[in-house]
Design a protein around this nucleic acid. Sequence first.
RNA 1: GGUGCGAUGGCGAAGUGGUAACGCUGCGGCCUGCAAAGCCGCCAUUCGUCGGUUCAAAUCCGACUCGCACCUCCA
Length: 496
Amino acid sequence: MSDIRIHNTLSGSKEPFIPLNPGKVGMYCCGPTTYNFIHVGNGRPLVVFDTIRRYFTYKGYDVTYVVNFTDVDDKIIKRAREEGQEPQALADHYIQEYFKDADALGALRADVYPQVSTHMPEIIAFVAALIQEGKAYELEGDVYYAVEKFADYGKLSKRSREDLLDGARVDVDQRKKDAADFALWKKAKPGEPSWESPWGLGRPGWHIECSAMSHKYLGESFDIHGGGADLVFPHHENEIAQSEGRFKRPMAKYWIHNGFITINQEKMSKSLGNFFLLREILEKFPGQVVRFYLLSVHYRSPLDFDDGKLQVAQKGLERLKNAVRVAASVLETAAGDADNQESRLFLRETEEGKKQFEEAMNDDFNTALAIAALFDLARILNSYAADRQAAAAVLQKGLDQLVALAGVLGLELMAQENSGQQDQELNEALAELLHQLRQTEGAEATVEEKMAALLELRQAYRKAKDFAGADKIRDGLKNLGLVVEDTVAGPRWHKA
RNA sequence: GGUGCGAUGGCGAAGUGGUAACGCUGCGGCCUGCAAAGCCGCCAUUCGUCGGUUCAAAUCCGACUCGCACCUCCA
């Protein structure tokens, strides 16, 4: 079951995935700082790691997936102050909003979502342990990590301490022993949230939370640590210094980092005016389309966002959905032999598609290639569904296969049931349409029944070569968002 | 200045030694009253440039050009 290969940032190359505990995967990803709605860039790791998690589950692993929220932070305090709110209330609010976006993208819930604010004892204990280990020192209520005490510092980001000093663009706190030392605990400033600690009132530095919380939920050493490429340095480098400095063993076996997102080929930044919140995109495109687009490019490559590219993604996703919709509608009339040559070939090709899908995903989660396998499956499904010799049971199998594999990527290909509210409106509109055609239909008739009546009427027009009449019905339905398609087996309709 | 990544057809994008997936677009054909959806076929002798290794390279090595990211809060 373990033919999965993962590109490990630590080694810079692909390595076979061998879990620390057979059959189990412990996975930690750095979640957002909750001071605003998440932006487009936050959406990528959300989808990428959700997909990786889903694939491990699909392959039979028992996955423990942890995503943290940084809910104690300078940006939160600043924003809360601007809005005259309590920092914690603001942070909690945006955590709730995060879940709305995550749901829209089809991300499954993680097993645990630890927050900094509710893990102070663990964090303080971690800092104290580092001081005891001689890896950290206190300075007037602040606690710093002594980078020189950790020989492996820089192994993740492939930087030497000299390199770091070379590029230092920040004002160095002169009290620190070494310019690269970073804060584990920050002394409280007046009016800011603070917690009691052995070093007085204060709050945690940015990096310590992940060491403390991953330790609590996944142990001293776990399988996978993920996040955006920008977290490699300093965040993840510092996490390694903290966790490995304390436990003397590898924090995570595999480090996975997703590439950056650009907007119209430019880095997303507020100054360029191209800083988009995820929900601004979600107003224009369904979450499924955004998800499909994010997965259509390998997770480590840079990915550019613009409306045109999302429109192409929308078409691609529709192609897959069409295949499923048509196959499902053909099921009823498919009466071919399940053991004829066509059927056997179809099943063989379906198996081949599945194999390609898995091989793609095994190879460092190559979702772009996996999606190509999905397109191949859609093509053979379309082909088979159009064959009069198609057998229902065989068709069903191919249909299920495509839906299942797309599901591994979090893509829902089966048509969603519409809400009763919309159906009510639709029913009334259809009654109106029938009325215009001088057809009296019982008020009790369902949408299905009214559609049947309308399509029957249209077929009569077509038979009589009254194409204007037939087109009038088709156009009328189109205005209601219903698409009519004629096939050899009769007309077929679906919601656009 | 340091570190790392990338450059593939009109567009997007896979592809780490054996002569270029997949999607969109375009063209031709089939199906159709017309559509829609779909099926079949065509569209890179070529993978930034120049060298090298090899029987064989988009794939390995070197140089160069261009682009991007990180070194500061950032997914």
